[in-house]
Amino acid sequence: MTFSVKRFMAIFQKDLKDLYRNMYVSSTALMPLIFAVIYGRMDNVTIEMHLFVISMSLALVGTFLQCAMIAEEKEKNTLRGLMLSPATLTEILSGKSAVTILITVIVTGISMFIMDFSFSGRIGLMAGIVLSLIFFIALGTWMGLITRSVLEASVYILPVMFIFGMGNMFIMFAEQYAFLQILEYTPGLQLQEIVELEDAGAGFGELWKPFAIIGAWAAAMVVLAAVTFKKRMMD
């Protein structure tokens, strides 16, 4: 399999330039920052609040940005042009994902800066965020491929935001509503598990379970996105 850095960069630059001019989609990235400002002004900012904003960034920026970019390519018939060009599936998806990763990392970084949170010494959490980001971007890719327009993508993102972005908040009601216990297995709650284990002094050997769960989500979604993309290459 070939991978051309030039083709990857061409797609990355084009998407960055296009996104810069797309106020509808790029303004979504402001949402986690708004939450960061609100929570950051509180007297006691708990780790749960930090993780809520991180999950929100991953779901809303990572997933929605990727989903909207791909949905728009389909809506405007530009994805077919890329598919018929020499760019491979890997180059197209990695070029787009690189833009989403860059913006998600910037938004998450600024949000945490606003909330006065330091990642220093939290290697497990950072690794967990990176692994979760793979899941959220693959989810965005898959959703972009199954939706027909940016408007449709904006509707489809709502359940993703509630389940994966706000899972840390809804888990509080799990005792009243048993079905919400499923949220414990979402990447956001697994990040919380990693933080709790890290704070309790657990080593990497004891962190395998949350990493395995997030890894399973990521692997399953990457496979689903790749299979769907290959199917979409054919009419």
């Binding site: 061409a10 084009k14 330039k17 001019r21 530009t78 042009g81 890329l82």
Partner: peptide, 24 residues
């Protein structure tokens, strides 16, 4: 084809530059 598309927010040059880079 009749359903080929272009990136509406970009200039003609930017659209063609993408493909010039993709085709080398």
């Amino acid at each position: 084809t009749d359903n080929s598309g272009l990136y509406a927010r970009l200039t003609i040059y930017d659209n063609l530059k993408l493909y010039a880079d993709l085709y080398g």
